[in-house]
Each structure stands twice: as C-alpha cells, then as structure tokens.
Write a protein that binds this DNA or RNA. Structure first.
Length: 670
RNA sequence: GCCCAGGUAGCUCAGAGGUAGAGCACCUCCUUGGUAAGGAGGAGGUCGCGAGUUCGAUUCUCGUCCUGGGCUCCA
C-alpha cells in the first residue's frame, strides 16, 4: 500500500477494461503480488498501471465475501434510516453471510423489524448507489464519526491510529462507514440477500462490555445460490443429532439432569461399540487401561491446579457432615462478630468445608497412580487409558445437545514418557488419530494448535518447550495446521483435531496436549539408565475426544445410518404374516447365537408397513420371512446402503456377510 | 452468565380470557396380507413449574426451570 511506484496509477476497472479482461459479472479483483496471497481490491481503487490483476466474478469465494460485506453496509444504512439513534459497531462478512452489531436504544429488534429492514435494503439496492472509498487522515475520520456520534467506530478508530493503520471511509449514497473495504462497485450488485436472525453480542466479544444487537444475514451472487443455501440448511436440520437421536431412540434428556444425556438401549449399543473399538486399538498400540475414582478430596485438585484455575467448571461435593461443620463454624463466627458475617468469610468457610470435588479430568488420578510406586525408565513410555466418567459444570447458555454436555466420557489417556520420547509419541498418535477417523469416513479434519491461555499454571520456559514439541510433531507429519493463540488448556498447549457437524459448526474431538507441569506438581519421577531420578513428561490425549460429542457428530455425519459394525440392530426379520412367526423366531435365535444384533418385527402390520418402519430406523439389512423362506431355509435380504433387494441368501451366507461387516473396516480380514 | 425465541398427549404440531384438538405411536378387535403406512374402536393432557391480575388464566403480567439460536468458554 505504501510502495512507491514511478508508474502512474489508475482505477482497477480502467486497467482491466483496457486489457479486455473485465467480464460483465465482475464485482472486484485480485491484486497479485508474486510470493504473496492475492489481495482483494475494489474496482475503483487506483493501483499502478502495470499491476497484475485478475477480475473476480460474483461467484468467486473472495467476491462473495465482498458482496456480503457490502450487504452489511446496506443493512446498517437501512437500520439507521428506520431506527434513528442506533449506533453501529462491527459488520464483517462471515463464512456463510454477514452481520452487523448495533447499539439500539429501547427494545431489541423483532422479526418484523428484520422484514422492514430487508425491504428498506431493497430500496437502497434499487437506487443503484455507488460505493466510494476515501483515504483520510485520522482527524478527518474523527470529524466525520463525531458528527454522526458513532462512539464505537470512534473507539475503533483510535485503535487503528495507535496501530499505525491506513484509515479509509467507505460511502454509498449518504451513508458513511469507517471501513477498510473492499466493496462492490454499486448497491445494484447485491442481488440476493436475506436477514436471518437477531442475537445478542458483546462489544468486541468481551463479556464485561455492553451487549449489542447483532443482526445476521446471508447474501449470494444470485437468487438461485441463495435458495440453494437455504435448502441446504433445511437438509442439515434433518440430520441434526438432537432430532435423529429422538427419532431413532438413541438418547433422551430430562430437566432434572440438564445437559446430561440418557443413552437409551439403541444409543447405549452404539456407545459401547465405540468404546469396544477403541479398546481393541489399545491392545495394538500398547496402552494399559485403568479405572479411577469419581470423587476426590479437594487436596488432589489443589495439587493438580484445578483449584482455582478450573474451579468454575467443577462440581464440588460435600457430605452432610461437611455442611454441618461449615454451619457450626459460621454460627460461631456469627456470634463472636456480634451478628455480622461478611461474604468473603462465608465463601472461605464453604470452599474449605466442602471437602470433595467430582473429577472434571482423569489426569490427576493418573498422576497419583504413576506416583504410587517406584518407576523405571524401562516402563516408559507408559500409556495409561481410562474411560472414566467426567463432570464439568458448563454455564447454562453454552450446552448443546450431545456436543456440549455436563457429563461425558473421553477415550482418555495419558502417556508418561521421557523427554526424548515426546516427539515420537506425538507422531505415532497423529497416525493413530488419522487411522481412526478413516474408519469413520471422516475426511475433513482441521488441525489447530492452541497456545498458552491467560489463566495458566507453569513457567513460560515450560510453555515454550511444550508449544515447540507440538508444532515439531505436527510438522514432522507434514500436516497443515492453524494456531489458536490463547486457546490452550490451563496446564499445557494442545493439538486439536476438529470435525464439522451438519450445520457446519466445527467441534474439537481428538486432542493431544504436552504437559510439563503435572509431573512437577505431583513430584513424579522415574529412575533413569544413570540411576538418577528424572521427571517424566505427561502427554494428555484423546482420539474420539468425548464419546458423547463424537457420537453427536457421527450421527450427523451418517444421517443416523450407522455402518453395520456400529448399528444397534444389524438386521431385522420381517414376517409376511403371523404364520411365519415361529420360523422367524428360530432364525432370530441362530443369528443371535452367531453374535449378530438381530430383531424381528412380529407385529400385525403388513409387510409394506414393516419395511417402512425398518427403513425409517435405518437398519442396515432387512430380511423377509414368508412361505418361500420357510421352504428354502434362506432369507430374502435387502440392503439399506445399496438400497436394493439382494435376493435369496442362505442363512450361512447372511451370517458370514454380517460378521464381515460387523467389524470396523481397518480390522476386517480381507 | 448475558441477549433473543420457545415449552400444549410418547412424537410432530394446531388452538384460544369461559377448565383443549389433529396425525403418528400405544391398547383391543377385524383382516393373514410378499417389498415405503389395511380397517374399526379405545385409552391418553393439573397446556413446564410457582405466584399475581380477573367472577374465571393453559391463554394476560412477573418470577423460575428447561430447550433452541447467538455472545463467551471448552472435549
């Protein structure tokens, strides 16, 4: 932006036009600098005449972001026309649309308001107002924003000035915004938009800041693309694990256990199959499984650092005796202080008097086990697995179906190893994770490295070492990754493996965390080859993450149609009439004896109805039992996945087929 | 926790200041039917919970719990 060129500058559209490279649907352009990612510029921005440029059609993803950002401006314009006195804050494009945050005096926006705003936006679009960019001095910007009393924008301006950023104003019609752009040439280019919802959002996302009203919208290059997107959203809703979980009788919830799933028999079958799958892997990957307590003396959590670094997320537990002791203590203080008690005193008494904590993580228990006896370097790396149930108090507004719950089980494990074993443990864990995700047909895995948070334990040198170990490990495997600054756990940085749900929200499932703190806090050691004491390193890791969350994401991934190896019912027998019930019962017995999860529909329904029910329940195989089957001793099989009739198969063939498909792909014989 | 929207039968949902309705599921009976819903009848609700306004509240008001969408946080 500040490169001095001796070539004269011209607006982008003029240059492209001269070169005959400006198609009709162009909304912006890429300014290409060798060795750097292309920069999106608007068509009226002057650039050096010899610039390398590429016209962006409306359908290009980068152009879409421009369209959406411009839509946000037009929405803000419409809002301020309809609701004078409303201030604007931030209004960016997002992955699926755009939003703008408003400080609106009086009542929040209603759905009717949204429709009115859309209508006003339509008028602004029809007026074909040009977007213009103006490079200004901080003083000029200040003057404009003070005149319009845009206090949020003024605050932001001062940050930009402090950071030494170039300041620009964008204008369409009479509406001005502090904005770096780029934008479409004119409002007429906004052909398909829709406002979707209102939500509260804190100014700058900080909870102590005032809450603003955020209006979300979406915009596309044309009406058809918008309709396709809305249709896709509808489809995604059908796959929602909360809806399917209810329909397929997988789980249920009760207000008396908020955010805590009950697994119904069918859900429990899948849940157990997932754990069985991981257990088999543990045999192959040299893990040892342990079972640890649920409730601990608070001393454990003081030692581990969970109190106070994680206290807000913990359930504390007390015996009746604990509470009586606290009450007695407080009663005495109350008497001595002449009837006065201050809140701090009460809190102190409570926190100290409530003796127990419910574990939110397994690691402290594993540390105790490691420390329970003298350890040798020969035992390392020691890979300790635990399917213990964890409880975390999640704030009421953040829980969500199965993907964010208050009680869950992780395929958790801690690897105690020597410093020089860290790298290879990280690398082999990455291999393990990818092998597992492949079995579930998850291909879009996002890798994030989360670094030190503000609230943390341990010295900065230790954090430097931990973060480097993770980055080295991921790079050694040649994986692409993003850095999430400040997102690490309080005891160490994390590699996170993210997968998307039906609605496109990204969830962390697998994780590996390097922890140089825990061994220190629990004073863990092992005897080395040199006969001296050494500190082990602890690696926290989970593959599926929490079984609950993984289950939720998996339901959506397969739309409730679980592969045969996970399906709660692998095959169901459908009798043509009651006359064949006895035969069906015999076949059922044989299937079950062979280890197949089979059921039979002996209801009075007609065959067509039974088929419909079985299909709706997404059962992998349906077998019809009638006259022909009784005579031949076989089964007429049809497949959910191939969606076709497989014809008459002998019972042995059916059993062989189901046993084969009954194991995860990576464990099958052939 | 904060902002917004919800909570009516097991499920999906309609309804309205005068003590509730549909479809599916469930129960009984008829039908014994060969590849996506055969028929008839029946039972089932303190309209999330608690207060207030009212002659009367499931409907209006307030509080509370739960769910959903965001903000924020995490597996």
């Amino acid at each position: 932006m500040n490169s001095e060129s001796n070539v004269s500058s011209k607006p982008v559209f003029a240059i492209l036009k001269e070169r005959g490279a400006l198609p009709n649907n162009t909304v912006a352009a890429h300014l290409i600098t060798p060795g750097a990612p292309p920069k999106v510029v608007d068509l009226h921005t002057p650039v050096p005449e010899d610039s390398q440029l590429e016209a962006l059609p409306a359908t290009h993803p980068d152009a879409l972001a421009v369209i959406r950002h411009s839509s946000a401006h037009v929405m803000a314009d419409a809002v301020q026309r309809l609701f004078p006195g409303t201030k604007v804050a931030f209004g960016p494009a997002t992955d699926n649309g755009f939003y703008y945050d408003y400080d609106k005096p009086g009542a929040p926006f209603t759905d009717d308001d949204l429709r009115a705003i859309e209508k006003k936006m339509g008028e602004i679009v029809a007026a074909d107002q040009r977007f213009t960019r103006e490079k200004v001095s901080p003083e000029q910007a200040r003057e404009v924003l003070q005149k319009t009393n845009e206090t949020y924008k003024l605050e932001h301006l001062e940050r930009l000035v402090a950071a030494g950023e170039e300041i620009s104003l964008y204008k369409h019609g009479e509406w001005v915004d502090l904005c770096e752009g780029p934008h479409v040439p004119s409002t007429r280019y906004l052909k398909a938009f829709q406002l979707t919802m209102v939500a509260g959002a804190y100014w700058r996302g900080v909870e102590t800041n005032p809450m603003l009203q955020r209006i979300y919208g979406t915009a596309f290059a044309d009406k058809k693309a918008l309709e396709d997107y809305l249709k896709q959203l509808e489809e995604a809703k059908k796959r929602d694990h909360r809806k399917l979980g209810k329909e397929l009788e997988l789980m249920t919830f009760h207000p008396w256990a908020p955010a805590s799933p009950f697994f119904l028999p069918r859900g429990a079958a899948i849940y157990n199959a997932l754990i069985e799958y991981v257990r088999k892997l543990y045999v192959r990957f040299d893990y040892i499984e342990v079972i640890t307590p649920q409730i601990f003396d608070r001393e454990l959590f003081v030692t581990s650092g969970h109190l106070p670094a994680y206290a807000e997320n913990m359930f504390l537990a007390a015996s009746k005796e604990n509470i009586e002791n606290v009450c007695e203590h407080l009663a005495k203080v109350h008497e001595k202080e002449g009837g006065k008690l201050d809140a701090a005193e009460v809190e102190k008494a409570l926190v100290e008097g409530i003796r127990f904590g419910v574990k939110p993580m397994n690691c402290p228990a594993h540390a105790l086990m490691f420390g329970s006896t003298r350890r040798s370097y020969r035992e390392l790396p020691m890979r300790v697995a635990d399917f213990g149930r964890l409880h975390r108090f999640e704030r009421s507004g953040v829980t969500q179906g199965m993907t964010r719950v208050r009680t869950f089980c992780q395929d958790d494990g801690h690897i105690f190893c020597a410093l020089d074993q860290v790298q290879s443990e990280i690398e082999s864990f990455v291999d393990l994770v990818y092998a597992v995700y492949k079995d579930f047909d998850f291909t879009e895995v996002r890798v994030v490295i989360a670094t030190r948070p503000d609230v943390r334990i341990g010295a900065d040198e230790i954090w430097d070492k931990s973060e480097k170990a993770l980055i080295d490990g991921v790079e050694a495997k040649g994986l692409k990754y993003e850095i999430a600054p400040g997102e690490g756990a309080f005891y160490g940085p994390k590699i996170e493996f993210h997968l998307k749900d039906a609605i496109g929200r990204s969830w962390q499932l697998g994780t590996m965390q390097a922890d140089f703190n825990m061994a220190e806090r629990f004073d863990l050691s092992y005897v080395g080859v040199d006969n001296a004491q050494h500190r082990p390193v602890a690696l926290h890791r989970a593959i599926l993450g929490s079984i609950e969350r993984f289950f939720g994401v998996l339901i959506e991934h397969v739309s409730g149609a679980f592969p045969t190896w996970l399906a709660p019912e692998q095959i169901t027998l459908l009798t043509v009439s009651e006359k064949f019930d006895d035969h069906a019962k015999q076949v059922l017995k044989k299937l079950k004896a062979a280890g197949i999860r089979a059921t039979a529909d002996l209801s009075g329904d007609k065959l067509g109805a039974k088929i419909r029910i079985a299909r709706n329940m997404r059962i992998p195989y349906r077998a019809v039992v009638g006259e022909k089957e009784v005579e031949s001793g076989g089964l007429s099989l049809s497949s959910r996945d191939e969606n076709k009739d497989l014809g008459m198969l002998s019972l042995d063939e059916v059993i062989a087929k189901l046993l084969h498909e009954g194991v995860p792909p990576s464990l099958r014989a052939s």
